[in-house]
């Protein structure tokens, strides 16, 4: 959103958004997680997994979600990763048994509910449509965007079981794009944890509160499904590259350069996708951004 702002203001002609981290081969991530908040560390509370697990546990109580819903998300995304040679888990299929045998990290989350920790980097260039038309790749434009940041502290949070920032941000993005949710061909959702995918899609309005279990169970988001989600494997099964994992995958899918996992005839869809919705969120569901991208 900031990139679009500086481009529109004429401050520059192109914006490079990059991310790189040696998260797996160093202890920097664990250090960051364990140094975050002294008041919480006293109680042995560290990092993001437990924060999201608190949200997920409350959601289990309020609308009956849980591992029986989340297993579909983990397994469906792994099926996508198994079609993506760049994915960390390309050679590791996941069955329902594998999911339930995955060890607890912070209950109710198993390891299979957690995103990966990955060494790597990713970059995206944002420029004007006018400039992009003179480049050699098909143009992917930003149809709409929205941002909403509900609150700062988990102890003051009222949004952990929805509506999260996804609700307002999603409405803003769809309004700007001038489309309805039915026109979305696929989604690339920020999936730090399985529950994040559920609550984000629920708040965007793809299904009603608590109906996720049935919705996901039909293979809806897996290869060949009605609404493909996280088609690279996502943060759960491809690589953790922050919000650039979903965003870069959406651009590459719309450019039709995704090989075996390419949405379209390659993976049992009638046509190639034209419109893909992406999300990003931060904190414990405290910040949210939504983007609707279109192939021009």
């Amino acid at each position: 959103m900031h990139a679009v702002g500086v481009l529109e203001a004429g401050f520059c002609r192109a914006v490079l958004i990059t991310y790189g981290h040696s998260a797996r081969s160093s202890d920097s991530l664990l250090k960051m997680l364990t140094s975050m908040n002294a008041d919480e560390a006293v109680f042995g509370h560290f990092g993001a997994a437990a924060g999201y697990a608190l949200a997920a546990r409350r959601a289990m109580h309020e609308f009956g979600t849980g591992p029986e819903t989340w297993k579909h998300i983990a397994i469906s995304q792994r099926k996508w990763a198994n079609l993506n040679p760049q994915a960390v888990t390309f050679c590791e299929p996941m069955t329902e048994e594998d999911y339930f045998n995955s060890p607890w990290v912070v209950e109710p989350f198993r390891r299979a509910d957690n995103c990966l920790i990955t060494d790597g980097g990713r970059a995206i260039i944002v420029t004007t449509v006018e400039r992009a038309r003179n480049l050699r790749h098909p143009v992917v434009s930003i149809m709409g965007m929205g941002m909403h940041n509900p609150s700062a502290e988990v102890t003051m949070a009222t949004h952990l079981t929805g509506p999260t920032g996804a609700k307002v941000a999603g409405e803003q993005a769809l309004r700007m794009a001038g489309i309805t949710i039915e026109e979305i061909d696929a989604c690339e959702i920020y999936d730090c944890f399985t529950y994040t995918v559920e609550i984000t899609l629920q708040d965007y309005g793809f299904f009603r509160r608590g109906e996720g279990r049935d919705w996901f169970s039909e293979g809806t988001i897996a290869p060949g499904g009605r609404l493909p989600v996280n088609t690279s494997g996502g943060l759960l099964s491809e690589a953790y590259q922050m919000g650039l994992t979903p965003l870069s995958e959406a651009v590459m899918q719309l450019r039709r350069c995704c090989g075996m996992r390419q949405l379209g005839p390659e993976t049992g869809m009638k046509k190639y996708p034209e419109i893909i919705l992406c999300s990003d969120n931060g904190g414990i569901l405290q910040t949210h951004a939504c983007y609707v991208l279109r192939r021009m």
Binding site: G44, G47, A50, A53, R58
Partner: peptide, 15 residues
């Protein structure tokens, strides 16, 4: 109790 979680992983050696 609003919500609760059960830690099974030692994020900090003290725990």
């Amino acid at each position: 109790i609003y919500s609760y979680v059960i830690y099974h992983f030692p994020y900090h050696p003290g725990f």
